[in-house]
């Protein structure tokens, strides 16, 4: 591998992790009982996304400025979710 990836695991290893996590999530969803599988599957999805972001998209070595460009929108998505929740959930009760 090139000097650029000398620090931290190489791309191949990240790729292996991702494949393992993907297979694991399919396996988990077919084996675990109802509420647990959803949580587990989403935890695995988040883990995969974090791996891609940190290593493939280099967030690990990026500056705070780029980080904020990613996490502020993410925060706004959460805001949108919370703001929408009472309205749409109304039909539940």
């Amino acid at each position: 591998m090139a000097a650029g990836e000398a620090h931290g695991p190489s791309n191949v290893i990240i790729w292996v992790y991702l494949v393992v996590l993907a297979i694991l999530s399919v396996f988990v969803s077919s084996v675990f009982p109802a509420p647990a599988d959803t949580i587990a599957v989403f935890a695995l999805a988040i883990a995969k996304a974090v791996l891609v972001l940190l290593y493939f998209m280099h967030l690990r070595v990026e500056k705070i400025f780029i980080h904020s460009l990613f996490f502020i929108p993410l925060l706004l998505v959460v805001v949108l979710y919370v703001g929408l929740m009472p309205d749409i959930m109304r039909s539940m009760y």
Partner: peptide, 18 residues
């Protein structure tokens, strides 16, 4: 400004808690 949007909807059947 990202936290005020629902004020356009006070009469649209918005949840009062909002």
């Amino acid at each position: 400004s990202f936290l005020v949007w629902a004020h356009h909807q006070f009469i649209s059947g918005l949840d009062p808690r909002l």
